[in-house]
Design a protein around this nucleic acid. Sequence first.
DNA 1: CAGGATCCGTTTCGATACTG
DNA 2: CAGTATCGAAACGGATCCTG
Lengths: 141, 141
Amino acid sequence: MDPVNERRSDCPISLSLEVFGDRWTLLVIRDLMFKNRRQFRDFLRAEEGIASNVLADRLRRLTDAGIVTKTQHLTDARRSIYRLTQKGVELAPILIEIVLWAARHERTAAPAEELAQLRDDRAHVIASIRNAHVGEPETPT
Amino acid sequence: MDPVNERRSDCPISLSLEVFGDRWTLLVIRDLMFKNRRQFRDFLRAEEGIASNVLADRLRRLTDAGIVTKTQHLTDARRSIYRLTQKGVELAPILIEIVLWAARHERTAAPAEELAQLRDDRAHVIASIRNAHVGEPETPT
DNA sequence: CAGGATCCGTTTCGATACTG
DNA sequence: CAGTATCGAAACGGATCCTG
């Protein structure tokens, strides 16, 4: 057998199941990362139809895990703004690989142009995600 | 705002939630990919303690999805051998990114040496995974 | 009105025991 | 050894209520 596999064969690999073992958690991260959603109601409008109690729970877990931050809207005190932390932004390579895999193997609605950008200009995509979250103290809309 | 984000803002991104929304599914794939597990009992011995009915269900779903194949052991008819298909092998980049992210952000038990290999010699790692699954009709042990 | 919390019927999950 | 049957526990979805 290949020595690479040999050596790896009993490796205790961590998969961060808190994040990846849950359907809704992943969808929230996707919405933050690729759809620029920032407020509670934005996530509620996700195509997949998340319930408000489930959403609140996942946002709390993500902030507890240091993946998301919650701040107040500057002018409207009612609104909360959710953003990815640096740790959260660094999930981008994973999400990108998932999207590319899904595009290759399942029929997906993602336009070919955007997929090509994810594949060929990964660094730029990630930089712009970071810019929209970590580097942006201002509030959208 | 960055035009990259602008354009991506309403993209219907598919995440293959059948695979990634579930904790046990991901663990089974990890065991196939990094721990060379092939038989039902091997997966049962996972540190995380999967139940037999859950394991049977997840293996069935994965074979239905074309990610795993199930064949009979050549000499012992009772035994089933599970392997990744090409589609399954192509999940490797995702798993690798997850492991690397977890190693950076959570305390993980994975040895530094193996992590470095995952990071720096990705092509070789993936090739050896493919070799151990798609290219190997023989049965282990 | 936005962001949640609470209650509750229903579905899904998973631990254990059991079978071919 | 490789699964299935059973059944209690947990999660989910949906409605509604609450609070600033």
